[in-house]
Simulated assay, not measured.
Amino acid sequence: MFVVVLSHLFRKNFIGITLFPFIFLRDPKLKENKTLINHETIHIIQQVELLVIPFYIWYLTEYLFRLIQYKNQHKAYRNISFEREAYANEKNPNYLKERKFYNFLKYI
């Protein structure tokens, strides 16, 4: 995992994104944000589990389904199973040590 700061690529409402094996952040100070780094690291593990490309296909498909379901971009994003798992566990520093394989399925 590599953490990279690319402030000019982010819109106001985005602070980070994970594209295996990189975590891209808007601001260098965010490197110290343990909750954010844990959240993005959960996404790294999810991507590895699904062999990267299928993760992105699933993520986009689920986002589009949720967008139809909720008719709201933010609500659709927050209800993607991968995001639900990451947000639910981002404050637990031990989560990745305890996490079961394919645990995001519990959040569908």
Rank of each mutant, 00 (worst) to 15 (best):
M1R: 06
M1Q: 09
M1C: 12
F2K: 13
V3I: 15
V4A: 05
V4G: 03
V4R: 01
S7G: 15
N13M: 05
F14P: 02
I15G: 00
G16K: 03
I17R: 00
I17E: 02
T18A: 02
L19G: 00
F20G: 01
F20M: 01
P21G: 00
F22D: 09
F22K: 05
F22E: 00
F24M: 10
R26A: 08
R26G: 03
K29N: 15
L30M: 15
E32N: 14
N33H: 08
N33T: 04
K34R: 15
T35W: 13
T35G: 11
T35I: 14
I37C: 12
H39N: 14
H39D: 14
E40P: 12
E40R: 08
E40N: 10
I42L: 09
H43T: 10
H43Y: 14
I44G: 11
I44W: 03
I45P: 08
I45M: 13
Q46P: 11
Q46F: 10
Q46T: 12
V48D: 00
E49T: 07
L50K: 10
V52R: 13
P54H: 04
F55R: 01
I57T: 03
W58P: 00
Y59F: 15
L60E: 06
Y63P: 07
L64G: 07
F65Y: 15
R66K: 15
L67W: 12
Y70E: 07
N72W: 01
Q73N: 05
H74V: 07
H74Q: 10
K75Q: 08
Y77K: 15
Y77C: 12
I80Y: 03
I80Q: 07
S81I: 03
S81D: 02
E83I: 13
R84S: 05
E85M: 02
A86V: 12
A86M: 07
Y87I: 09
Y87T: 07
N89A: 04
N89Q: 09
E90T: 02
P93C: 13
N94S: 01
N94E: 06
N94L: 07
Y95C: 00
Y95Q: 04
L96Y: 09
E98Y: 01
E98S: 02
R99Y: 06
R99C: 06
K100T: 05
K100I: 02
Y102A: 06
F104Q: 03
K106P: 03
I108S: 07
I108M: 10
